[in-house]
Amino acid sequence: PNNPTGTHVGRAAVERLLKELPEQVVVVLDEAYVQFADADDYVSGLELRGLRERLIVLRTFSKAYGLAANRVGYAIGQKDVVSYLNRVRAPFNVNTLAQVAARAALQDPEHVERYVALNRTERARITEALEGLGLRVAPSQANFVFADFGRPNEEVYDRMLRMGVIIRPMPAPVDTWLRITVGRPEENDRLLEAVRELVAS
């Protein structure tokens, strides 16, 4: 899924890209939000590795695992292609505490499953509520929604901030859109209450 829209590119388009690009091109697919994607035509690059040797798939522990402050991620690809990354990466680029946290997160897949399920439920609830208020919402496959408030987003950001809600404004050409992270149910209740107040004013 794309950041900041939350939209995705379907299997057919990804397969076509991998097949039609010149062989010397290295394709990098950033799958930071892969755990949240549930569209029927969504495909992970890991399923398509047979189509192209020069394919690297990036994953992170920042989103579904909740370890953003630790800055832990990894790349999956052919050994000779990934070896080039090792030549340019900084030494000791992941500290010991972050490595321990990532290993512990891998031992608790049920936590990720619960979080992803809650996100899907709340993402759908937020989307439906925002659309019910007349806002356009991009079809999200991530842990956030992208909504068009139809007015300068800096104004929306400032008003929401004064109501105790932080959402992220975007620059032109999407300067009426804001990215809204899906939170816990009670946080989302507060968000929707603030949006209703904003839209009514």
Rank of each mutant, 00 (worst) to 15 (best):
V88H: 09
V174Q: 15
G132F: 00
L118W: 11
V174L: 11
Y42R: 09
P173M: 02
V116D: 05
K63P: 05
Q35C: 11
L18D: 08
A194E: 03
V57K: 07
L135D: 03
A117L: 11
L191C: 14
D148K: 03
E186D: 10
D30T: 11
I126Y: 01
D41M: 00
V14R: 06
A194D: 04
F92A: 12
V116T: 09
R159S: 15
A147I: 05
G183A: 02
V137I: 09
K79A: 08
G45L: 03
Q99C: 11
L67P: 03
R71A: 11
A172F: 01
L18Y: 07
G66F: 01
E187W: 07
A117R: 14
R120V: 04
E110S: 08
R103Q: 12
I126Q: 04
A102R: 07
T96D: 15
T60S: 13
L85R: 01
I56T: 09
E110M: 02
V112R: 03
A105Q: 10
A200K: 07
E193R: 15
K79G: 03
V165F: 00
T60N: 01
R59K: 09
Y33I: 13
A12I: 09
L17V: 12
D80E: 09
R190A: 12
L178A: 07
G77W: 00
A12D: 13
E186S: 10
Y42E: 02
V27T: 15
A124Q: 13
E23R: 06
G6W: 04
Y157E: 06
V199L: 06
L67H: 06
A124I: 04
L58A: 14
G10C: 01
N143A: 00
V28A: 02
E154H: 09
V28K: 00
A124C: 07
V100H: 13
M163Q: 06
R168P: 06
Y115Q: 06
L178G: 08
A64H: 00
A147Y: 02
Q35W: 10
L106Y: 12
R184Q: 15
A32E: 10
A32W: 07
V9I: 11
N188I: 02
W177L: 12
A90E: 12
V26H: 02
V112H: 05
R162T: 09
A13C: 06
T96Y: 14
V112M: 14
A69D: 13
L46M: 13
A37Y: 05
P171A: 08
V9D: 07
L55A: 15
E128A: 11
E23F: 11
V165L: 06
R190Y: 01
G73I: 05
G45F: 02
L58Y: 07
N119G: 02
V182P: 03
E31S: 03
D158K: 08
I76V: 08
Y84K: 07
R162S: 14
R151Y: 06
A101F: 07
T181W: 13
G66M: 00
E193G: 04
D175S: 11
